[in-house]
Design a protein around this nucleic acid. Structure first.
Lengths: 346, 346
DNA sequence: TTGAAAGCGCTAACAC
DNA sequence: GTGTTAGCGCTTTCAA
């Protein structure tokens, strides 16, 4: 059937062990040049392809990396995953991507599956702020890189966006437009992204002399349009003076806020401005085109994969997050507040 | 280190072979109930997890399926891939998803990689209408299911949308609105989706007594916004009487057409109506919300996975495509043509 | 530098 | 019904 190492060895007139020395990773593990060439020729002629399964069984390495994501359907993760896959692929690794829907039970099951399959490392885009799985992975000193989200402890390899700076950009932009009543529809607080952006919002507002009160912040229980709608409705119904602008926990939440505005006969950006976060695909085409804080998604995936390759190769340094810089993309969902629009520039 | 079958056998006081009989797929391959129970207990106590690598090496099956997609970043493939993965996962299979960017060389490489890894079957969402890889796969009687796209030959297992019916719905809708000059910005003709929709367009227009001429149809060289823009510009620049409506090869092409309209100071749907195809995520939120032919993406993935599971289990029947029905989702990108809008209903 | 031998963990054909 | 045996294809230690 398939051509094996033994076939190659026979044809080259050497022992399989020798053929292995020539053909496996190292390349030239002490084999004479002519022998090596004979083996390589034989391999070529027979169209030999090493059997990765057998190799894995023997070496307990698999040239495979497990990638856990919440949901590949979420447009955020397309580019992120491609960044990971392209980079790993170039290094000869295969990615096993599993969706967990933010369900810890599924995360655990996926983790076990991947472990059983002897993956050489993990890229986790699913971390919760306190994440037993991540703790365990570190405990067992597995090669792990967190992606996008990180955990509360900071002795772990991660690639994340600079949430603080991102929110600062958003707040500064709104302030520059003249907004003073700015609300925050935060993402889930058990995720680092949700929590960090919320803290950054408080700090940034405070910095511009507008310390937010309880009524200015509401927390969506997931990073989805539906959760965004529910949260923003709750904020508006709480009865405080309505905001003229909203910093949303992410783009999907921002879309949810847009829906609520429409429900209530309000218009964006005329009545309320909205800033999203991430700049996922198509945000330039929604109605109105979304002003948002762009994170370099593909790049994040790439960096995470590179880091992981390092760790797989044995690097033990840099157990600290890598923080990538965002940039504000101003589109049509932000404008001066209604009243301010009528006033002369300050 | 890790607990092996041998450990379980020792603890249960049986031979590894017996333990294997209890613990592997079949479940009860002629083992007495008490023995089986003892083995299962031992496995539970030790937290035994079978080593899939070893099992694969022995059985040359891997409980893994290779999934080739053009680009997971394309919103169409998120739901499709989830449908596949969820279904395979439920059956204990793992999906290895690889992006090929419609590059035959990458497709071939991915195929080889997957083959080397002993995947039990393939879901190919990358088929070209004449596809050497698919031919080869059939030749070698591998378990293969095509997804979304199919090939010219029809003796192959596939799950596709009913392109003909989909285009009929689009054309009927436009006709009902009063459009007579309807153009088609087709997708690539080397892909079944692009070709089938184009043929369907010709047939549907003919059916309503409006046989399209050469100037009514232009072909985009990929299913992207950019290709859509180029193609639609070419159509408009060709100098025929401009269309009042466009049936686009897919949603991304439709977005490209929208851009061209904007470039030229035309408005959708006031000046030109546009119908997309697929109803990918966020099409309900673009400007204007896209009228499009929805294909059940997740369901397509699910069906393909089910079919593949059948083939892996040995089914040899049904080497014909399964065709899923589309439905038209009318949104804001279609309206009566300008002139007709002023006339009384016919 | 190369050959020999052992074994990764599992299953399946065969024997008892 | 259960134990025995062999071996999937590869790598790697040890000897020569």
């Amino acid at each position: 059937m398939r051509v094996t190492l033994r076939d190659v060895a026979d044809r080259a007139g050497v022992h399989p062990g020798t053929a292995s020395r020539v053909l496996s990773a190292g390349g030239g593990g002490a084999v004479s040049a002519p022998t090596a060439e004979r083996v390589r020729a034989a391999a070529r002629e027979l169209g030999y392809e090493p059997n990765p399964i057998a190799r894995s069984l023997r070496t307990s390495r698999s040239q495979t990396v497990g990638v856990l994501v919440p949901d590949i359907t979420n447009p955020l993760f397309g580019p992120i995953v491609r960044g990971v896959e392209d980079t790993l692929d170039a290094a000869g690794y295969v990615s096993l991507v599993i969706n967990t829907d933010n369900d810890p039970a599924r995360e655990r099951r996926a983790f076990a599956t991947l472990l059983a399959r002897q993956v050489d490392g993990f890229v986790l885009a699913t971390a919760h702020r306190h994440d037993a799985l991540v703790d365990e992975a570190i405990e067992r000193s597995l090669a792990v890189v967190l992606l996008n989200r990180t955990v509360a402890r900071d002795d772990v390899c991660a690639v994340v966006g600079d949430q603080t700076h991102g929110v600062e950009l958003a707040v500064a932009h709104l302030r520059a437009l003249g907004h003073t009543r700015v609300a925050h529809v935060a993402g889930p607080q058990h995720l680092s992204t949700g929590a960090a952006r919320r803290e950054a919002f408080v700090a940034a507002m405070r910095h511009v002399g507008r310390s937010p009160t309880a009524g200015d912040i509401v927390v969506a229980d997931s990073f989805t349009e539906e959760a965004g709608r529910r949260a923003f409705r709750a904020l508006l119904d709480a009865g405080g003076e309505p905001p003229t602008a909203v910093v949303a926990g992410n783009d999907l939440i921002a879309l949810g806020c847009l829906d609520v505005l429409a429900e209530r006969g309000l218009e964006c950006p005329r009545d309320v401005s909205i800033v999203g976060f991430n700049d996922i695909p198509l945000m330039d085409r929604v109605t109105p085109a979304m002003t948002t804080v762009r994170l370099p998604q593909y790049e994040m995936g790439r960096r995470a994969a590179e880091l992981l390759l390092g760790r797989v190769a044995g690097d033990r340094q840099r157990e600290r997050p890598i923080v990538l810089e965002p940039r504000l993309v101003v589109r049509a969902s932000t404008a001066p507040p209604r009243a301010a629009a009528l006033l002369p520039a300050a």
